[in-house]
Design a protein around this nucleic acid. Structure first.
Lengths: 153, 153
DNA sequence: TATTGTTATACTCTATAACTATA
DNA sequence: TATAGTTATAGAGTATAACAATA
């Protein structure tokens, strides 16, 4: 016997068309796709992102990365330690309390692979949205994101 | 002394304009805003969403809700138990293995407050996006979300 | 045999508090 | 006094595996 409502009427769902809900689902799909694409390299999206940011900002400190990504100091420590333990980046004391970050040779190779993977991932979705105004989409997302708190910490 | 790169050049950030990253940040801002708006009622966004779905689908079973929201059976159990323990919804056995869900009188009152809160939250962001094509934005988000796995479980 | 619900468990992400050391 | 980094800890969210009962 059909345990749900009716054989002929599918369930009602007034939540699905809500903007916040649609954003959440779309974001989850893209993050999951990127996670799968980076799994080859045993890197999570946040780790790949850190490699890219350190690569284009050699000498930046851990807190700079945390502020850019909205990740708190306390949560940056194990992330950076993990990447350093894998030999992908180096931590060099600069003034006694700050650590300058830079990619190692191996880290730079990983960064290039991450960058290519992210570009391909991005391109795959942009192709699906070829009939859409991407500039307008990015503008809308930027406006929404700007309503949040400035940064972590 | 300046511990970062330079006094005159802000940090480079090629990650910020990526679609997946922008989606993640925008989604986080809207979810945080909704969470704050629902905090008065001591309901999390997922709990409010369940109240709405049960309210418009009285008699639906726990698994139906899980499938609609992409939440696995194992994680639905404590969610539904919590709402039932607070007297917001009832669980009625329908065929020995399924539980029909329905809102209690108190749950229906909570659902109305949640619905009004979500409407106001949605309206606040739509006002910010008044110069944007909302139908195009929803269409883009729908296309992205459809690339994901059909459902949990 | 597939579905429903439950329990136990684990991993990730995020958050706060407290601490040391330095600018 | 504010900043940088660390440690410990706690709460969500999500994942799998195993189980009982039922369709």
């Amino acid at each position: 016997m059909d345990a749900s409502l009716s054989l002929d009427s599918p369930l009602s769902d007034t939540v699905a068309p809500r903007l916040g809900y649609m954003l959440r689902r779309a974001s989850a799909v893209m993050m999951a796709g990127l996670g799968a694409a980076l799994a080859d390299m045993a890197l999570r999206p946040v780790e790949g992102t850190i490699l890219i940011l350190v690569g284009e900002n050699p000498g930046c400190i851990q807190s700079d990365i945390g502020r850019m990504l909205g990740i708190k100091r306390a949560n940056m420590t194990p992330l950076i330690a993990g990447l350093a333990a894998r030999g992908l980046l180096s931590k060099t004391p600069v003034d006694g309390r700050s650590l300058a970050l830079a990619l190692t040779v191996e880290g730079e190779a990983a960064r290039r692979r991450v960058d290519a993977t992210m570009d391909a991932h991005e391109a795959r979705f942009e192709a699906l949205l070829k009939d859409h105004d991407m500039a307008a989409l990015r503008d809308a997302l930027r406006i929404i994101a700007q309503q949040g708190e400035p940064g972590a910490d």
